[in-house]
């Protein structure tokens, strides 16, 4: 219940924040993931760099060809924002199904992405949306594709001296749609994903021109199910085509057993939720 002692800084500018980021530091935005870990004494950084005071980072803005989601945008905002709904419904749904009201009021979308929990919802949404992660440090700024961002369990490409300052979500065309669905640990949609899938499709002349499908809860990290997308592209998006594509859900995925499911069950669920997400994504076009 009581974290170990640590130092704390709350910079007012990005420059100050980079300055503060030395060894054994941890960036904190909402703290919904970090603080419980510290309370359980599973992890204690030497210095917590609280970026909560950084200006202008709590906005979702239309940047022409993409939507910008700042580091301090809360899950609840992502869930209810019109721009996100119009361009990345899968991410909006994933944000809406993250935690509970209080968590959605404090936790940030960027924080959830950087935390890279294997059973979190929004990484799948970001993967399906083909979001670009903008990671900045004293040394400059770099862009990381979502598909390269989730490295391993609780490990993202955002280094300890870096801050995920915002993400860029490509604008969606009229022939595109996306969706997210999961089975929560408590059953239904509640809690972390036992298995979840996000799907994005682009239709053209009645067939699937492009697709992206992402999994969460199933493997060692949130990841794209590329062979599903390959199998889906070029089909008519019929139930039969979706089911056939969904059979590839865990191709190349190391499926992890846990309290909530055996390898066999999670493999099965991955297929079910990939199928459900694709079906809904097509419906959302």
């Amino acid at each position: 219940m009581y974290p170990r002692s640590f130092d704390y800084v709350a910079p007012n500018t990005l420059a100050e924040a980079f300055n503060a980021l030395g060894d054994n530091c941890k960036v904190m935005a909402g703290g919904m993931s970090l603080i419980p870990l510290m309370k359980m004494r599973l992890f204690t950084p030497g210095v917590v760099v609280d970026i909560g005071n950084l200006p202008d980072m709590d906005q979702i803005t239309d940047e022409g060809d993409h939507i910008k989601v700042g580091a301090l945008v809360r899950h609840g905002t992502t869930a209810s924002d019109g721009l996100i709904a119009a361009n990345a419904q899968a991410l909006a749904t994933a944000a809406a199904l993250t935690g509970d009201v209080q968590v959605r009021n404090r936790g940030t979308t960027c924080g959830a992405l950087a935390h890279a929990d294997i059973a979190a919802d929004q990484p799948a949404g970001a993967l399906a949306a083909d979001a670009v992660m903008v990671v900045e440090s004293a040394g400059g700024s770099r862009e990381v594709a979502a598909s390269d961002f989730f490295v391993d369990s609780l490990t993202s490409a955002c280094g300890p001296q870096e801050i995920l300052t915002h993400i860029k979500i490509p604008k969606a065309g009229e022939d595109e749609g996306s969706a997210y669905d999961k089975l929560g640990r408590r059953g239904g949609h509640s809690d972390y994903a036992v298995a979840g899938a996000a799907a994005w499709v682009k239709k053209s002349n009645g067939s699937i021109e492009a697709a992206r499908v992402a999994l969460t809860g199933v493997g060692t990290k949130p990841q794209l199910a590329e062979s599903v997308a390959e199998a889906l592209v070029g089909t008519d998006g019929s139930d039969a085509a979706i089911e056939a594509a969904a059979q590839h859900a865990v191709d190349g995925v190391v499926v992890l057993e846990d309290l909530y499911g055996s390898e066999e069950y999670k493999t099965h669920l991955a297929k079910v939720y990939v199928g459900r997400a694709i079906k809904q994504a097509i419906a959302n076009v």
Partner: peptide, 9 residues
């Protein structure tokens, strides 16, 4: 806004 005061410093 409703928040959990055990998960906020």
């Amino acid at each position: 806004q409703a928040i959990k005061s055990c998960t906020m410093l």
